[in-house]
Design a protein around this nucleic acid. Structure first.
Lengths: 288, 288
DNA sequence: CCAACTAATGCAAAAACAGCATTAATTATG
DNA sequence: CATAATTAATGCTGTTTTTGCATTAGTTGG
């Protein structure tokens, strides 16, 4: 049984038409017909009911379609991952990160990477679905930066640093360290409070701890946009201190007591030495 | 790429010796050598480092060994399941059950099965690890009877019946319905209280509700053995009412208020019509 | 009843595969 | 240090499998 046969089967199971399928998979109709026969023969399972005109899946075929579709997807993913290991320093590694590190940590880290592993290709993604565990264990990512610690038997998680969160206000705003009152009257420009990200839940708890029901006038996920709006006097915001590195004009950062952490997460039994190296580099960058 | 090649790879990855491996998988050494080369070639991944004397896995090879070992296991399981669907009424279906239904429900159910589906082969297992969800979703079983309801998005669970649990005492024992006192002085012969089965946890909670710290003198999983010991006057026990059907001599059942349920569980999107039929038959048996 | 369609199959050429015998390199032995 | 033993790769040859073309045979729609 070949993987190719299974892939042919999956296309045919969708198309339910030998000629169209044959064309799609770049073999002749006769060859396809015989490949499917060979598969049925070897499995001793009838996959399709066909007469001279129609093709349809049997129940066993439907079952195998569902199961194999998933398994072949996994299968291909595994091979891609093995290739990464094989290619080592000249290969690709995938990194996911929260948008909030894009201004300070991430650029520093990427610079160090390109100095130490100049041929390494990096695939950066800011994940929508922040299920770091799944992304790591599926091999959809190799290194996940996150704001909260991941607790999973198959994942190692280490804190890189903490930083204060800050009120972000236009220059010469009435608020400053000595005068953090009447926040409830301020207009807030804030990153998706409704979301389930760690930062959003930290914000919600901060607001409730300070008895504030924030008047949110604009929501934006993009920190740069937020600072821009703040500098124009449209409202104030709350962001991690590292956004200061963006050097937005006309904006001041007022440190709050609350802190936020950054963690780095990777698969416990990682075999890819390049990934291990990258993790070490990340830790070094954070130490400085 | 053939499944066979992957299986050869897995054996070689364990043996790390071409001659031994070739013998194990019943092909010649030269053929094996070329199969592995073909695999490496097609994947464009080096799996083994070999000189004229030694064979060892590369990191990518180690990774694929780990991943493929699991995936091939799943793969074979999926095919076995597909075969069951294909064979239908003449095939096999797997059923897991708690020991406590062996005296009444199970025999009735099996009789109905053999009348309605005479050619169907049944594989009965009393699972040690009562993880019904996993057993079902892995296709290790097709129908799981359980004492507690299973809550899982991919599993359908339905109650078949409830029955009282009973004190089991020798005939003419001082205990009866009017006189359920001083149980704390009785010696108990009970099925594994330390276990994590649903029945055990029900017993524990019953004892604590009644303020009893039972003196357990014998633990046994086998209901028949328990009743035998009770009849010999060695102690008393607690069992579901249906054990009465075993018609042990010299034993009386005293119904308690506590009830215990029996559920039947199956995969939500079951494609095997025979399994669906068997589920219907089970429901009918329970209704009577 | 004919035309269009479609899955299966006979056939011949091409490709892939198997196993024997041998090679080439390494390690162990006396 | 020479020789034997070990072991993975490879050349070669006969066998099996696979391929695609052309054709067949059954079905459907007009």
């Amino acid at each position: 049984m070949t993987i190719q046969q299974i892939k042919y089967f999956l296309v045919l199971a969708k198309e339910l038409h030998f000629w169209n399928t044959a064309e799609k998979v770049f073999i002749s109709q006769s060859s396809l017909s015989r490949q499917i026969q060979a598969l049925e023969d070897e499995l001793q399972i009838q996959l399709f009911e066909r007469d001279k005109r129609n093709v349809k899946l049997t129940n066993a075929g439907k079952f195998l379609q569902e199961q194999w579709r998933e398994e072949i997807k996994e299968f291909d993913q595994i091979i891609r991952q093995a290739k990464k290991i094989d290619e080592g320093k000249t290969g690709t590694i995938s990194i996911t990160y929260p948008g909030s590190i894009a201004y300070e940590f991430l650029p520093k880290f990427l610079e160090v990477l390109s100095n130490n592993l100049p041929d390494l290709k990096i695939e950066l993604t800011e994940p929508i679905d922040e299920n770091h565990e799944k992304l790591l264990l599926n091999f959809q990512t190799d290194i996940a930066f996150s704001r909260d610690k991941i607790k999973n038997a198959n994942i190692d998680s280490q804190k890189l640093y903490s930083e204060p969160i800050c009120l972000v206000v236009p220059k010469n705003h009435r608020l400053n360290k000595k005068n953090l009152t009447r926040l409830e009257n301020e207009k807030f420009i804030i990153s998706g409070l409704h979301q389930t990200t760690f930062f959003a839940s930290l914000l919600r708890s901060w607001f409730s701890k300070n008895g504030i029901e924030p008047k949110t006038i604009i929501e934006s996920d993009f920190g740069g946009m937020i600072m821009n709006l703040v500098s124009k006097g449209l409202g104030i915001s709350i962001l991690p201190l590292s956004f200061k590195s963006a050097q937005a004009e006309n904006v001041e950062f007022i440190e709050l007591e609350e802190k936020i952490d950054l963690y780095i997460n990777w698969r416990k039994k990682e075999l890819n030495n390049t990934i291990k190296k990258v993790i070490e580099l990340a830790k070094n960058v954070a130490k400085k």
